[in-house]
Design a protein around this nucleic acid. Structure first.
Lengths: 207, 207, 207, 207
DNA sequence: AATGAATGAGACTTCATTCAT
DNA sequence: AATGAATGAAGTCTCATTCAT
C-alpha cells in the first residue's frame, strides 16, 4: 500500500471515529460519550481508537475544534457593510443563531462544555480576547467602525462585543433548553433581541 | 433521646451530607458528584446516605432547589423605585448576578436543567409568562411603568423582559463556565451589560 | 403494665409484623421480602423486628406455618362420606383448589418455596408421610377405605395419595403461572382432572 | 489469530462462563447466581462477563433455554408405537422426567417462569393448544389414536393431554423442590404416577 | 420496648485503558 | 493496522444485622 493511500485511509478512519463520536454526542451529550459507544457504531474494537487518538480527551478536542469551525463557517460569509455596521452585526448574529438552533444539541454540548481543551476555543470573556478570537474581533471591529462613524455611542468595543455576544448566547441557550417554544415566538424574541442590542431600553432623544 | 433532639440530629446529618455534596460539586461539578465521594468526606459508609436521602437524585434536587431558592430570595428584597424603574431593575439584576455567582454550580445545574419538573419552574420564554413567573412579572412591570413614565421607549414589556433576562442569563452562564475570569473583569462586564441594556448600541439623540 | 397486657401487646406486634410480611410476599414473592419493607409498612424501625423474631428466617417460618394453617383450614370442613370416598376426595380437592386459586401468589410462594423451614411443612413425597401430614393422611385413608370397600383398585394408599396430590398440585401451579386462563377453561380442566384421577386413561370394562 | 480460531475461543469462554453459572445454580439455585460468583469460579474479573453476555439476564436466559431444549430433545426420540399408544406415552414421559430431573434448576427456572416471552413457549392450558405446541400435539394425538383403537375411554384428547401433562409436571416440580427424595422413592412415585394416569383410582370392570 | 444510626458486604454495571497477538 | 481479552476502579443501591441510647 502506498504511503499516500495509507495516510488517506488513516484520515478516513479518524473521520469515521469522529463522525460516530459526533452522533453519540448529538444524542446523549458529551457526558454520554464513551469509547465503547463510538466503536460499536463503526463496528471496530475499543482498542483501535488508541491507534488514532491518544485518549478520549483527544477525541473530544478534535470533535470540538471541528465543530467550532463549522459554526464559525456559518458567519464567515457575512458581507462587510461599510455604511451600516449594525446591519453587518445583525446579519452575522442572524446566521449564527440559525446555525445554532439547527444543531441544538451540538451547540449546547459545545458551548456549555467546561472541558479545558474546549474552553480554549470557546472562551470569550477574558481581556484582550479580540486578539485571539476571530469572532470577537469581527464583532468588536464592527463596533469600533460604528463608533468612528458616529453611528454607535462611544464605548470599549471589546467589552461591548463581549456583552452583546453573551446576550445572544443567553437567548440561544434558553431557547434550546426550554425546547418547546413555537417558531413564531422564537422569531419575535430574536427581533426583540436586536431592538434591545441596538436601541436599549431607555427612550431615544432624551435631552 | 427526645424526639426533638433526634430530629435535630437527623437534620444535622442531612446537612452534613449536603455540605459534603456541595463541596464535591464545587470542586468537580455536578457531574463529578458521587455517593462515594460524599461519604468519604464525612467518613461514613456509602449505605448510610440512603437513610437520609432516597437516592442520589434526591440529594441533587435538594442541593439545587436550595441553591436556587437562595438566589431567588436575593431579589425578593429589591425595593420599589417609583421615579426610576431602571434603578430598580439594575438593583435586582445586581443582586441576582451576585447570588448566582456565589453558587455557580447550583445555578448552572438548575437553569440548564432540562428535566420537565425543573423546567416548569425555570421556563421563561413562552408567551404570557408574566402571569406565571414572579420574576418575569416584576421585571415586566418595572418596564411597563418605565414606558408609562416616558423613561423607556414603547415596547412589549413581556418580550422585552424576556430578552433582558436572557441577556443577563447569558452573561452569568458564560462567566461561570469560563471559570477563571478575574473579579475585576467580571465587574467591568456587568457594568457594560447594564449600559447595553439601558442605552443599546446606537448613538443617543439620533434624530 | 401488667404482664398479661404486655404479652397481649407483644402478640399484637408480632401479628402486625407478620401481616406486613404477608403483604410484601403477596406482592413480590418470598424472594422480595426484606426486613426494611416490613418495617416500612408498619412504620417501625428495622431494629424492632429483632425484638420479636430472631432473624428473617424466623419470620419466614412463622409466616409459613400460619399460611399453611389457613390453607389446611379450607379442607378441614370436608365431610366424611362413608359410602363414596371418591366424593369426599373430590370435595376436598375442590375446596383446596378454590382456596389456592383465591390466593395464587401466596400459594405459589408457599408451595414452591425451598426454604428448609418451609419445606418441613410442605414436604409430601417422603415415605411414611401419612404419619406426619394431616392432609396426606386424610387423603390416604379415604383411599384405603375405598380399597377396602372394593370401590378403588388395590394399591399402596400412601403412594397413590402422593401422586394424586401432585397431580392436582401441578394443575393448580400451571393455572396460576399461565395467568390468563378463562374461568370456563379452568372449570373444564378441573373437571377433566377428576375424570383422570378416578377413571384413568384406559378404557373401562377391559376384560 | 485466525478468525475461526478466535470464534472458537470466544465460544469456549462463553461456555466456561455458562458452566460456572450452571455450577453456581446447581448449588445455590438461580436465586443465588451472581456475576461475582461466576467470575470467582473461572478466576476472571467481573467486568469481563459483559464482553460475552449483555447482562445477567442474558446469562440466565442462555442457561435456561439451553437446559430446556435439552429436555425437549429427550422426548424427540420417542418411537411411535402403533399398537399401544400408552406405551408411547409412558416412554415419552419417562424420558421427559429423567431429563427434567437431570437439570432440575433449569427445569424449574423455565417452567415456573412468568416472563411473557417464556410463557409463549411454555403455555399449555389454553384451548386449541394442540395446534401450537408440538409436545401437547404429540400427546393429544397418541390419546386420540388410543381412543380410536378402543384402548382409551372416549374423551376430549386435548383436555386429557393437558391434565395428564400437568399431573406429571406436578410430580416433577414437587420432586425437585423437596430436593432430598431418595432415588428409590422417586422410582416408586413415577411408577405409581403411570398407574394413576392409565388406570385411575376406581376399580376396573366396574361396568 | 423501641429507635435510628451505622456498617460491611454484596448486588449489577460501565468505563478507560492496556496488551499480546 | 487491528483485534479482542482483560482489568480494576468506580458507579448506585439494597440488605441483614448490630448497638448505644
Amino acid at each position: 500500500m502506498g504511503k499516500r493511500r495509507q495516510l488517506l485511509k488513516q484520515e478516513e478512519i479518524k473521520a469515521n471515529i469522529l463522525n460516530a463520536a459526533r452522533k453519540v454526542v448529538a444524542e446523549e451529550g458529551f457526558q454520554g460519550l464513551s469509547i465503547r459507544k463510538i466503536t460499536k457504531l463503526i463496528d471496530y474494537s475499543p482498542g483501535i481508537v488508541y491507534h488514532y487518538f491518544q485518549n478520549k480527551e483527544a477525541i473530544i478536542e478534535a470533535l470540538v475544534t471541528e465543530g467550532y469551525e463549522r459554526i464559525l463557517a456559518s458567519i464567515s460569509s457575512v458581507s462587510r457593510n461599510e455604511g451600516q455596521p449594525e446591519a453587518e452585526i445583525k446579519e452575522g448574529f442572524t446566521k449564527y443563531i440559525r446555525a445554532a438552533l439547527a444543531a441544538p444539541e451540538e451547540y449546547k454540548a459545545f458551548l456549555l462544555n467546561e472541558n479545558p481543551s474546549v474552553l480554549t476555543k470557546t472562551s470569550l470573556l477574558a481581556q484582550g480576547i479580540m486578539e485571539r478570537s476571530r469572532t470577537l474581533r469581527a464583532l468588536g471591529e464592527a463596533i469600533r467602525r460604528g463608533i468612528e462613524m458616529g453611528r454607535f455611542a462611544p464605548c470599549d468595543p471589546e467589552l461591548m462585543a463581549q456583552v452583546i455576544w453573551t446576550s445572544v448566547f443567553g437567548l440561544i441557550i434558553k431557547i434550546i433548553i426550554e425546547g418547546n417554544i413555537p417558531q413564531e415566538q422564537i422569531d419575535r424574541l430574536i427581533e426583540q433581541e436586536f431592538k434591545l442590542l441596538f436601541y436599549g431600553l431607555m427612550v431615544r432623544n432624551r435631552h
